[in-house]
């Protein structure tokens, strides 16, 4: 489902050149529940950017959901991303001027893969799935952190992507809410979604079937941990 081969990525900053990924290789199969761990500055966000097509690799091969990302132009990447990947951010990143339901509808309207007549019902179903059926008219500033993240997950699922990528999804939440969010990801994995979570936290309490660690831009495939 996801295959990275010898990927390199360098950034030019005021402090000099940063080699964010060095010959990084990784392989994830459909239905995997993957955790990528790494310290701040290790290159895990860059890795996520490369997988999601947000950023481009300088060298190496990136194949995600059957598409060779290095061969797609910006528009094609956008369309591909909308259909193939759902992204969940650490700080939720909901559009503040839209209600919970509208944030989900907005994502569907941008991609256009869900028929117009089915969108509203789907948005309500997704909110129901994340336990927020009664909050559909609420605006982001009227929701708690956990609720915002659940709306963000529902939004990531808006276009029914096979892969769900989450960047520190519980980094900003208390432990009880974090557990609820992790459970939600687990349920989605059980339902067939490929999950990739990036975190710098202790992963002992997490359930996953594969784990990668990243240090100074190099990926190490750790032992699988039964989910």
């Amino acid at each position: 489902m996801i295959r990275l081969e010898n990927v390199n990525k360098t950034y030019h900053t005021m402090g000099g050149q940063v080699h964010a990924l060095k010959d990084a290789s990784l392989s994830v199969e459909a239905g995997d529940n993957v955790v990528i761990i790494g310290k701040s500055g290790s290159g895990k966000s860059t890795l996520l950017n490369i997988i999601t097509g947000i950023d481009r690799a300088e060298s190496g091969q990136v194949i995600v959901n059957g598409s060779v990302l290095t061969q797609l132009n910006e528009s094609e990447l956008a369309i591909w991303r909308g259909k193939s990947i759902g992204i969940v951010f650490q700080f939720y990143q909901l559009l503040p001027t839209l209600s919970a339901a509208d944030n989900i509808l907005f994502a569907m309207e941008l991609v256009g893969s869900i028929p117009t007549g089915e969108r509203r019902a789907r948005a309500e179903n997704l909110l129901n799935q994340v336990g927020l059926a009664d909050k559909r008219k609420k605006y982001p500033n009227e929701l708690s952190g956990g609720e915002k993240q659940r709306v963000a997950i529902a939004r990531a699922l808006a276009n029914d992507p096979p892969i769900l990528v989450a960047d520190e999804p519980t980094g900003n939440l208390d432990s009880k809410t974090s557990d609820q969010i992790h459970q939600l990801f687990l349920d989605l994995n059980t339902a067939g979604k490929t999950i990739i979570k990036v975190t710098h936290e202790n992963i002992e309490h997490l359930r996953y079937n594969r784990v990668f660690s990243i240090t100074d831009g190099r990926i190490k495939d750790n032992l699988a941990h039964p989910a």
């Binding site: 956008a78 909308g82 990143q93 907005f106 941008l110």
Partner: peptide
Amino acid sequence: TLEIGIMKALGSSSKD
């Protein structure tokens, strides 16, 4: 900046 980034991440092109 943030919102444009979010929209990009959701599958919007610059043109959209």
